[in-house]
Simulated scan of single mutants.
Amino acid sequence: MSGGSRVLFDAPGPRARRRIRIATALSVVAGLALVALALRQFADNGQLAAERWRPFGTWPMWRYLLDGLRATAEAAVVSIALSMAAGIVLALGRLSPHRWIRLPSAAYVEVVRTIPALLLVYIVLFALPKYGLDLPLFWKLVVPLSVSNAAAFAEVFRAGIRSVERGQLEAGLAVGLTRGRAMRMIVLPQAARRVLPSLVSQSAGLLKDTSLGFVVSYSELLYSGKVLANYNHLLIQTYLVVALVYLVINAALSKAARTLEERNARGAGRGRAQRLRRKPSLRERGGARA
């Protein structure tokens, strides 16, 4: 895998693209049918009446939900930062030539990837306090999310590092850099650029995982929606509005990931074209030898 656009998977062929288009079309049709059925059921039960939606046009309602969204963003940003930092360390550990570093890093990634994030939340919430480690409410959500997503980020960074041509590292070693400095100054910046779309996609998934905050009673967006629904008795309307907020945010992040991926693909294409233009023809090489 040498191109920035083929870091984690190979591009699908004609048959695979056709199957993807067919599956996408069927999924869209099935989704629209379910939405139409749900709207009909809501209408039959009076859930679409204007008076049930009018409270969501007031500022106090939105201010409360925006406070929950702010708490969600704070937990997500801190979790992403910690997960990425740990992911880089784990990725470098898995690629280390030393077994005593490589094996524990690989064990962490393989084990943690199989454990649901919800189970880690329960461990932090119920198990750790029995041993005298009772974290603040914010960290009861951030710590398990960071532990869980560090393994996923580690695999993303590892794929990015392995996609960088080995000659880049060897060139750094040849000019006198240590392996660590060559990795930090030469390989990691290129790897980060190549996997940036995947990092954004993984961050979007982590943002959705912050909804586990309702388990620890952390006032993120979903928990705020739950409290609000208990107050205004508009259960369906409140959760639909919360779902719409999540949809808008994750759609924006997904769009950003696609844009970055397309930009990387265009950059890789321009780089190949420039290399081909610089490559001398057979006639030129023959003339140079003559």
Rank of each mutant, 00 (worst) to 15 (best):
S2N: 14
V7N: 00
V7F: 00
L8Y: 00
A11H: 07
P12S: 08
P12W: 06
R19I: 12
I20S: 04
I22S: 00
L32R: 04
A36I: 12
R40H: 08
Q41E: 15
L48W: 01
W53H: 12
R54V: 15
G57A: 15
W62F: 06
L66A: 13
T72M: 00
E74C: 05
I80P: 01
S83F: 08
M84F: 03
A86M: 15
L95M: 11
R113G: 06
R113C: 07
T114I: 07
L119A: 15
V121Q: 13
L125D: 10
L128F: 15
K130F: 08
L133W: 14
D134M: 02
P136Y: 03
L137H: 01
W139S: 02
V142Y: 03
V142F: 04
S148Q: 08
N149F: 15
A151N: 11
A154G: 05
V156W: 02
S163C: 07
V164C: 09
R166L: 03
Q168Y: 08
R179L: 11
G180N: 12
A182F: 02
I186L: 14
V187T: 12
L188Y: 10
R193W: 02
R193C: 04
L196K: 06
G205A: 10
S217D: 08
Y223H: 14
G225F: 11
L247I: 12
V248G: 10
A273Y: 00
R278T: 10
K279Y: 13
R285F: 02
R289K: 13
